[in-house]
Structures are given as C-alpha cells and as structure tokens.
C-alpha cells in the first residue's frame, strides 16, 4: 500500500520532472525572443527618430543637408498610393471573392483561377515590381508615375484581398443564403442583402491589413520607378512621386548618422500610418461585432 501511495508523489521521477521544466523554459524563452525583438526594434527606432519629428520635418522637401530634410513629398505620395490602391483593389478583389465564393460553378476554369490566385499570393513582391516596370512603366508608357506605382501595388494586394474576403464570406452561415432564397430572393439579392452585410467587417479588416502591407512595400515601387528625390508633391496620376518606404531606403543607405536618424524618424511616421490603418480595422471589427451579435 505504502509504495503505491509514494509513487504518486511528484519527486518520484526527478529526471523527468527536470527535463519537463527545462523544455518548458526553453519554449517560453523561444517565444519571448520574437516579442523581445519587436520591442528592441521599436525602441531602437524611437530613440533615434523621435527627437527628429517636428512640423518642419513633416512639411519639408528632401534635401542634401540633413537639418533641412523633410518627408512631405513621400508622405503625400504614400497617402495618394493608399487612396488609389484602395480604389482599384477593393472593388475588384471583393468582386472576385464574391464570384468565387457565391457564383462560381465547380469546373476547370474555376479551379484554374483558384490555383492561380493561391500562387500569386506567394510571388515575391519584387516580381510585381518587374511586372510594373515592363507593363505599366514601359509597355503602357506610364513612366515613373503615381499610376504605375498604384497599379503595381494593386496587383500585389489583390490576392491577399481576395483570399481574406473569401474567408469572410465563407464564415457567413449557409442557412442565411438558403433562408433568403427560400423567401424568393434571387441569388444576387441573397448575397447583397444577407451575406455581404454579415461579411463586411471581415472583408474590411482583411482588406485594410492587406493594404497596410502594400503601403510598407519598398522593392516593387523602387523597381517600377518611384523616385527618392521629388521636388514637388504629385497632384495628378501621371506625376512622378516618392513614397515613405522609398525615402527611408534612400536615407538608410547613407553612412552619416544624421541621415540614419532621419530614416528612423520617417520609419516612425510610416509605422504611425500603419498603426492608424490597423486601428481602423480593429475598430470596424469591434463595431460590427456589437451590432450583429
């Protein structure tokens, strides 16, 4: 009897206990590395850049003299890109998602489109830059314009928007569609009166997250002809432009510590833009969650 009782005690198998502990500590430690890296990254950027941000920095144009350099043209360029990419990619992406999720017949064409989108999502962003360079810049003669950049980024985010919108549509119970159609709604009516309203928060969050990734992209813009130095802010689609990540890249490459600090400041502004977008996404999600539940 006594031996059975003691064998249930914790210290009965010290070695196993110990290895349990060691592994658990290792796993927690590994998880913390990722979190710690993010914190250190943010602190590094903030310590160097926070002091640089003031109104002249936001309103000035690029300059070879660090004290006079500012980010006004790239900031405006990034906001332009954001608007244009949203305008182009949102309707097409959501439309494609609705087609594939609600209307597409199960046939070869559909499966080709689906495989194709999955593959596009995995194509490196720089390849989209080459696409923009060859097609928009050269073949369609749009040059180093805002339009070239916006279309390039649009193609880049389309797969992301399509995939996340499809997930949002799929999350709407099938019984809503059937219920609507049993009441005599056409398929289209069922989709835009019951399915879409329920899927909007998911679609919006997915789209905004996709867009925020596009806004942080540098390589495709560089390859498709964004400029680091622009002496004016763009005011039409065919103007040359710069964008925050491009400006950051230009400064990071310079050895002088002053330019590194400017890069850090510009990074903070870029992260601020991204943070705003993500907050909007979260806000939308929470608001709709309360409304529908």
């Amino acid at each position: 009897m006594a031996t059975v009782a003691t064998s249930l005690r914790r210290h009965s198998n010290v070695r196993e206990q110990l290895s349990e502990r060691v592994v658990a500590v290792f796993l927690v430690g590994a998880t913390l590395v990722g979190l710690l890296a993010l914190v250190v990254l943010l602190v590094t950027v903030a310590r160097s850049g926070a002091g640089q941000i003031d109104v002249p920095f936001l309103r000035n144009f690029a300059s070879r003299i660090p004290e006079r350099a500012g980010i006004w043209p790239p900031l405006v360029g990034t906001l332009w890109l954001m608007g244009l990419v949203t305008l182009f990619s949102f309707p097409v992406g959501v439309g494609a998602a609705i087609y594939l999720e609600e209307f597409a017949p199960k046939n070869r064409i559909t499966s080709v489109i689906e495989t194709n989108i999955a593959n596009l999502a995995a194509v490196p962003s720089i390849i989209y830059g080459l696409l923009g360079l060859a097609v928009f810049y050269r073949a369609l003669e749009m040059g180093r314009s805002l339009l070239t950049g916006a279309l390039t980024l649009t193609l880049l985010v389309l797969p992301v928007i399509i995939i996340s919108s499809r997930e949002a549509l799929r999350a709407v119970p099938r019984s809503h569609r059937l219920g609507a159609m049993a009441l005599g709604a056409t398929k289209l009516e069922a989709v835009y009166k019951t399915v879409l309203p329920s899927a909007v928060p998911g679609i919006m969050t997915g789209t905004i997250l996709g867009l925020s990734r596009a806004i942080g992209e540098t390589a495709p813009l560089l390859v498709a002809g964004a400029a680091a130095f622009v002496a004016f802010t763009p005011d039409n689609l065919l103007d040359a432009y710069s964008a925050l990540p491009v400006q950051i890249f230009d400064w990071v490459r310079r050895p002088q510590p002053e330019f590194q600090a400017l890069a850090a400041a510009a990074i903070l502004v870029l992260l601020g833009v991204l943070l705003t977008m993500n907050s909007i996404a979260i806000l939308i999600r929470n608001r709709y969650d309360r409304k529908t539940r």
Partner: peptide, 29 residues
C-alpha cells in the same frame, strides 16, 4: 433578370483578372 446576369459577368471578370496578372508576369519576365 438582366441585372443578375450582368453582375455575374462583371464578378467573373474580376476573378478572371488574376489570370491576366499571371499572364502579365510571365510576359514581363
């Protein structure tokens, strides 16, 4: 229901655009 048909075609074109993008990439490269 001509609207339904029209919308369906428009949505199909949105989805089909992705194939054109792939075509564009292959052409460009």
């Amino acid at each position: 229901r001509p609207v339904q048909r029209l919308v369906r075609v428009a949505l199909f074109l949105c989805a089909g655009l992705s194939v054109m993008v792939t075509g564009g990439i292959i052409y460009a490269l």
